[in-house]
Structures are given as structure tokens and as C-alpha cells.
Design a protein around this nucleic acid. Sequence first.
DNA 1: ACAATAAAAGACATGTTTATCTTTAATTAA
DNA 2: TTAATTAAAGATAAACATGTCTTTTATTGT
Lengths: 145, 145
Amino acid sequence: MFSKSTEYALRATLYIAQKGSEEKKIGIGEVAKAIGSPQSFTAKILQSLTKDNKIICSISGPHGGFYMTDKAKKLPVRSILEAMGEDEFLDKCVLGLDKCSESKPCPMHSKYKIIKKQLIGLFETETILNLASNIKAGEVFIKLK
Amino acid sequence: MFSKSTEYALRATLYIAQKGSEEKKIGIGEVAKAIGSPQSFTAKILQSLTKDNKIICSISGPHGGFYMTDKAKKLPVRSILEAMGEDEFLDKCVLGLDKCSESKPCPMHSKYKIIKKQLIGLFETETILNLASNIKAGEVFIKLK
DNA sequence: ACAATAAAAGACATGTTTATCTTTAATTAA
DNA sequence: TTAATTAAAGATAAACATGTCTTTTATTGT
């Protein structure tokens, strides 16, 4: 469904949301290990999430690392997809028609729109904090071997 | 949701199913024009759909071209995804965990599985013929400018 | 100031996707 | 058998995705 980059972005963000805070920042090494991702590549991805988009904060130097503000933790999962440039698929048509619409639908439109609405709902309703708290509770996992 | 290749494959297949038959084969030029895709690239894709997988038939030479058997037209849309190697996403987890399962779920698992089930249902229930016939009726479109 | 630590930034490498163009092979009709 | 037509096959190329490695910058503690 998503690119590797976005998968890592989602897992890393959830890990940082769960484990980190402004007082306890998380190093890239710990993040990569915890989610099972290539460290340098994950670093690039986190860099992009700290840029303009205000999802993750980072501090260089000793005791530095990544963390999220309480406000950022309340963002919907979709905001991560947006930051990774992978949310446009929620607007897109199964057959790849730019102008697919209610008045000019593709052959899958009417059946798919019902599913798409649920997908959008899922990514807009679930917050980062929401998902992260289930990790803390040990109910769900972000790394599996 | 899908790669360009798969989008072209879906549109091309629907067009051929709709317009073609063993008596009236469709040339690659007509297909590409009708669905708005790059001709040579579409040719490669159709080639792969005529290979092992028995979705599309083709004949070289004058009055040659592409067509589908009535049997092939009754295949579910999923068979095109399989032929394009893009159906594995229907098994995959949103966060990219290979082993995500009911007993070891990712944070999105429980909510996403409901949606995934519908997606699978959509691609397995809808047949190529089914979707193509709606094109013929002018109710839906496979090219929009 | 200096050394240590950690992220940021940049260069590089490999593979895949998305194409385009040319040549070959198959088929038909004259 | 020759010319025309059409898909198949192959070579090539640009863009992007995925990943590694090195250097630079920011920050902290001594």
C-alpha cells in the first residue's frame, strides 16, 4: 500500500511518540533498531519529517535525538502520509484517471468510493498518540521478526 | 494505489474486453489512444499479459491485434493484479510488517482488516466483463481529459 | 577552548519504474 | 515470393526509490 519510506516513517513516528518526550529524546540508532529499519535511510526520512512539516522535533549533540510535542502526537496519521507525499492516493482513482468523478466515473468508481471513504476515515480519525498508546500497552507491535 | 503499469493494464484490458473479440482484434495503437497511455509502454504491458498468464490473446500480422476469450473476460479483476504482480498488497500490512497477524498485530491491524476484506472482495467479485459492459453502456469511462 | 556526541547534509551506488526507439518475427494478401 | 502489417523482442535512457558512507554542523560537558 505504501512505499518503504512511508512504512518506516509511520513506524518510526509511532515509536518516537511512544518512547520519547522533550525530556527523553530518542537517538536514531535506537529508533532504527526498534522498528527494524536501515539506520541511515531512516535518518533521512526523519530529517524530512522535522523539516517544514512539524511532526517530529530533533536536537543535535549529546542527549540530543528525536521527540514529539504533545500537540504533534495528536495529529492524525494522515499528516504523516501528507508529509511523505503519499496521501494523494486517497484522492486517486483505482484506474489512475485524474478526472474520475461522480459525473464521469471510472468502472470501479461507485464500488471503490465506499471503501475509499473508510480509508480516509481511518487515516484521519486515528491519531499518532492513539496508535502509539496501544504499543505501550503491549497490545500491538511495530517490529516483528 | 497501483503503479502506472497496473493502471494501464487495467484500462487496456477493459478496453479490449469491451471492444474486441476473436473476430475483431484491436491494435495496440487503438488501445493506447483509447485509454490515453504511451503506446510502446502499453505494448510491453500487454505482452506480459499474453505470456504465461492467459488474460489476453494476440495475433501478429495484418488484421492481427489483441482480444480476449469469453472465458478470460469472466476472470475477476484480481487476476490482472496477479498477472502484474501487484496483488501482494492485499496481503500486506499498512506498516509493512511481514508477520503482522491476528495474534501479533500492528497498530493499524484491527481497523484496517475490515477495509482490506472489502478491497479483496471488490477485486475478486468484479469481473473484467462486468466492468467492461458498463463502459459499453456509456455509464463509465476509461479515459478522461 | 576542547573533546565527545548526535543529527544534518551531501556524495555515491544499486535497482526498479516508466518510458522510447529499433529490429525481428509472424501473418496476410497480392 | 514479395510487400505490407502487426505484435514481439531487445537496447537504451531518464527518473525515482532505496540504501550506504563520509563530512559537516550543532550542542553539551569538561
